[in-house]
Simulated scan of single mutants.
Amino acid sequence: MLFSPSEAANTGAGFWSSEDGWSQFDSASEFDEVVRHRIPFPKSARRDAGWVLVGSILHMALARDFSKLDAASKFDQLADRYADKVITGRSHLFDALEIQGVREDHQPGNPWGSCIEVNNEDPQVYSVYAHQIHNGEFGGVECIGDFAQHAAAVTFAAELRAAYGWPVHDYVPETSRTPRKECWLAGGLGYPSPFTHAAIAARI
């Protein structure tokens, strides 16, 4: 979908609809990759329109702030679990679970529309990672779930702990376990610096 922070800040209608122009989140059009490379960016108040991948962390954060769905429906949709894809047949490669806060910030100049970083002090959503055994060949973590609520990430990690016996390390401080309301135009036209995420390729 196409998102403009300046249009959203002005009226809340910062999401592009092919039929109605700048609209509310729940009316936004979704475009496939072929169209995404062909469609021109629509005019926006500060020329800050950019792509947001549906189902991404940034998409979750925008849905939480702008969707008009009732809370139960919204948070049920704002959860992405893919442990089976990562762990099945590979459980011997992992020895622990981690819960981390994550941010994905809007960057109109980025071809993908945004970039991702672990941020436990100011998270938008919460991710669960499987920690890889380090033996000279393996190491690091693999993301296995993203959640709009910290409690949902904790529940998911507990389910995996029961299944595999791995300890859970929660790196999110208590003060950051409820995401703040985003200020999508914080600092005027300034945007946070770019970042990376181990599992972004799986979501594109």
Rank of each mutant, 00 (worst) to 15 (best):
A8W: 14
A8D: 08
A8T: 14
A8Y: 10
A9P: 03
A9F: 09
A9L: 08
A9T: 07
N10H: 13
T11A: 04
T11I: 07
G12Q: 01
G12K: 04
G12A: 06
A13I: 01
A13K: 12
G14E: 00
G14L: 02
G14K: 05
F15H: 03
F15G: 02
F15I: 01
F15Q: 00
F15M: 00
W16F: 10
W16V: 02
W16G: 02
W16Y: 11
W16H: 01
W16S: 01
S17C: 08
S18D: 15
E19T: 09
E19N: 05
D20R: 12
D20K: 07
D20G: 03
G21K: 05
G21E: 10
W22K: 00
F25M: 12
F25S: 03
F25Q: 12
D26M: 04
D26H: 09
D26F: 04
S27H: 14
S27F: 14
S27I: 07
A28V: 06
S29E: 06
E30C: 03
F31Y: 09
F31P: 02
D32A: 08
D32G: 09
V34I: 15
V34K: 13
V34M: 15
V34C: 14
V35H: 14
V35T: 10
V35M: 05
R36C: 11
R36I: 07
H37G: 08
H37C: 07
R38V: 02
I39R: 02
I39Y: 02
P40H: 06
P40A: 00
P40M: 01
F41L: 00
P42G: 00
P42I: 00
K43D: 13
K43Y: 08
K43P: 06
K43F: 08
K43L: 02
K43W: 08
K43S: 07
S44K: 07
S44P: 01
S44M: 00
S44W: 05
S44D: 04
A45R: 05
A45H: 12
R46G: 04
R46L: 09
D48Y: 11
D48N: 11
D48C: 12
A49F: 06
A49K: 01
A49G: 05
G50C: 04
W51G: 06
W51M: 02
W51S: 04
W51V: 06
V52C: 02
V52Q: 00
V52P: 00
L53K: 11
L53F: 10
V54A: 05
V54M: 03
V54T: 06
V54N: 08
V54C: 04
G55H: 04
S56C: 06
S56M: 04
I57E: 07
L58C: 13
L58I: 06
L58V: 05
L58H: 11
H59I: 10
H59S: 11
H59T: 07
H59D: 15
M60P: 05
M60K: 12
A61Q: 09
L62N: 01
L62K: 02
A63D: 09
R64D: 15
R64P: 08
R64H: 15
D65W: 10
D65V: 13
D65C: 03
D65L: 12
D65Y: 03
D65Q: 10
F66V: 13
F66I: 11
F66G: 09
S67W: 13
S67A: 11
S67M: 09
L69Q: 14
L69P: 10
D70A: 15
D70G: 14
A71Y: 15
A71D: 12
A72Y: 11
A72V: 15
S73V: 15
